[in-house]
């Protein structure tokens, strides 16, 4: 196109790619800790594991300022309506990451009190295994989500399932870019 003749440097691209790039790079999680996983989520954000490396350290206390909900822990029958309300308060586009087995499937607590999988209440995009998942696993889940958002895969999957993207972090089809 002969761009090299221009005096100033600039990039061209589609607006869609720009939006995806922006969404991926400014993902703000809500501080929504429920149980054991919340401690690991805090540990992920703290000094040793330092979620700030991925531009994710700004945990927003208000759901209205957040676009990622990390469901960290078991969801009880009493908490389920609250969880849904917090989700509804978040602005679109919003992503949900189910952290740990309790949030993903009820885990070892298959009983009257626990919702057997948070996907019954909110659409889940990424499932992270572990009880609780170590900070590394949570980061892997977050990076998987980043990659889904960047490639636009997440919207395709959502259209496919009619709910959340429902990606397991062990899934091989989702490539995770190495952080630079």
């Amino acid at each position: 196109m002969g761009l090299e003749d221009l005096n100033h440097n600039f990039l061209t691209g589609t607006i869609e790619d720009l939006v995806k790039w922006a969404r991926r790079n400014s993902m703000w999680p809500a501080t929504f800790g429920l149980a054991c996983c919340a401690i690991e989520m805090m540990a992920t954000g703290a000094a040793h594991f330092d979620l700030a490396r991925f531009g994710m350290e700004v945990f927003r206390a208000s759901p209205r300022q957040a676009d990622l909900m990390i469901v960290a822990g078991r969801v009880s029958q009493k908490m389920a309506p609250v969880l849904r309300q917090v989700y509804d308060q978040m602005m679109e586009p919003k992503w949900v990451l189910s952290m740990g087995v309790c949030a993903s499937s009820g885990g070892m607590f298959n009983n009257y009190a626990i919702v057997q999988g948070v996907d019954q209440i909110v659409p889940v995009d990424v499932y992270t295994p572990g009880c609780p998942p170590g900070p590394e696993t949570l980061m892997h889940g977050i990076l998987t989500l980043h990659e889904l958002v960047r490639t636009g895969e997440i919207t395709r999957r959502r259209a496919e399932t009619g709910a959340g993207a429902g990606v397991h972090v062990t899934e091989r089809r989702v490539a995770v870019a190495t952080p630079t």
């Binding site: 009820g106 298959n110 009983n111 009257y112 057997q116």
Partner: peptide, 11 residues
């Protein structure tokens, strides 16, 4: 829930 005639509610 903790009564013995209340099932554990397993799915």
């Amino acid at each position: 829930p903790l009564r013995k005639d209340f099932g554990i509610g397993r799915i």
